[in-house]
Design a protein around this nucleic acid. Structure first.
Length: 140
DNA sequence: GTTTCAGATGTTC
DNA sequence: GAACATCTGAAAC
């Protein structure tokens, strides 16, 4: 089931199956029931204080599990570079980018807090979102 | 000092 | 196998 959420930065929608969130899109479609745990989490996030994560689908690969954990340790409003994270996970910077792009849960898993050493890097759902999110977190 | 380039590198599909 | 949301160091200006 696809639900929607209208945030101050744009429309968001997400896939809610079997009482957990399996995918999240940074574009609008679906309706907002306002009671879904993901909607609740999103509204708390956009008020500047994120709650504990709602249930989400398990990682597709073991590496994504490690990546997820590392990303969740980046505090709200801070960023890491691809190189730094690659060193903590004992992997190559480029491999990180590949795995981040394959992440089906942007925002919930804060993949937007990873930037390039020279430049902002990339973002699967549109670079405008990444910039807007980082600016929003900085000013919160 | 700054800019440019090639090579290394691990995960994903 | 090929593609990739990168980094680093060395060489040239």
């Amino acid at each position: 089931m696809i639900y929607g959420f209208a945030s101050r930065l744009g429309d968001i929608s997400f896939d809610w199956e079997s009482r957990r969130c399996s995918r999240l899109f940074l574009e609008g479609c679906g309706f907002d029931d306002g009671e879904n745990p993901v909607s609740v989490w999103l509204s708390s996030y956009f008020e500047g204080h994120a709650l504990p994560l709602p249930p989400i689908a398990p990682p597709k690969t073991p590496f994504q599990g490690r990546l997820r954990k590392a990303l969740l340790e980046i505090p709200f409003g801070e960023t890491r570079t691809y190189g730094e994270l690659a060193r903590t996970l004992h992997t190559a910077p480029r491999a990180l980018g590949q795995a981040l792009g394959a992440n089906p849960l942007p925002l919930l898993i804060p993949c937007h807090r990873v930037v390039g050493a020279n430049g902002i890097g990339g973002f699967s759902c549109g670079i405008e979102w990444k910039q807007a999110l980082l600016e929003f977190e900085r000013n919160s």
